[in-house]
Amino acid sequence: MMLQETPVLSVRGLTVRYGDGCPQCASHLEKNRCTSCGAVWAANDVSLDVYPGEVLGIVGESGSGKSTLMQSLYFDLEPTAGTAYLQNYGAGKKSIWEASAAEKRHIKNTIMGMVYQNPIRGLRMDYSAASNIAEKIIAAGSRNAGQMTERAKELLEAVEILTSRMSEAPKNFSGGMQQRVQISKALANNPALLLLDEVTTGLDLSVQAKVLDLIRKIKAKYGISILLVSHDLAVIRMLADRTIVMLDGKIIESGLTDQILEDPQHAYTQQLVHSLL
């Protein structure tokens, strides 16, 4: 039934290559690197769909191309090839990688929200938490300061940060709090899709659990679609409805999360699942 819906996001054939490549690349890949010309295929023909309201997990070891995918989607890097369609952009018929600079800003501010592993990438550390949220609202065109403050309060409450701390700068916050501010900022304009790249990696286990729990609540509250990336299958298991396994820039397996956990097909996935037990 899920598959009959229109996807929020459809990626087809995303390829990110570092280096020019050569005719031998396809047959000379060692992991993601061509032994003949040295080109790195960070993402190699990646296709996926995210459906409304679902959490799609992407798991894979370090260097498998997860961040490359996320950063391509958020325009932090330019793909070598591929298309990506958003339901809410260009009637789902124009690839976001063909958008103008202004359209890209619009997409980043209102259709997608991104949370990076490193909060320095997603936050203005010296500006107040409220301003971090207001930045998104301003970028979406609002010029009403009172409304921005109201929205900032509402979102900080949703991520369980005391509104009495809204005028403080995130640089004074703990790592877990910084991630929660990043999440609230990403949600500022009610985006249809939230991109979460290793958002709990590096946090203490108890803090990790709290942030994951928060993501679950946010999903329930806002009905937002989430693309959740982690090298840790335990994180994916907790939240993802469906899961994609990446290795060396390629998708090697995908399916319902339960199915993948119960009956992994690829040897690498089997090893991942095994190490979880």
Partner: peptide
């Protein structure tokens, strides 16, 4: 220069908002 070309003025508005909040 690029910000002017694209009328990307959100950061300057943010500066005003930050001042209001603080």
């Amino acid at each position: 220069k690029k910000m002017h070309a694209e009328s990307d003025y959100a950061p300057i508005w943010l500066q005003l908002y930050e001042s209001l909040i603080k």
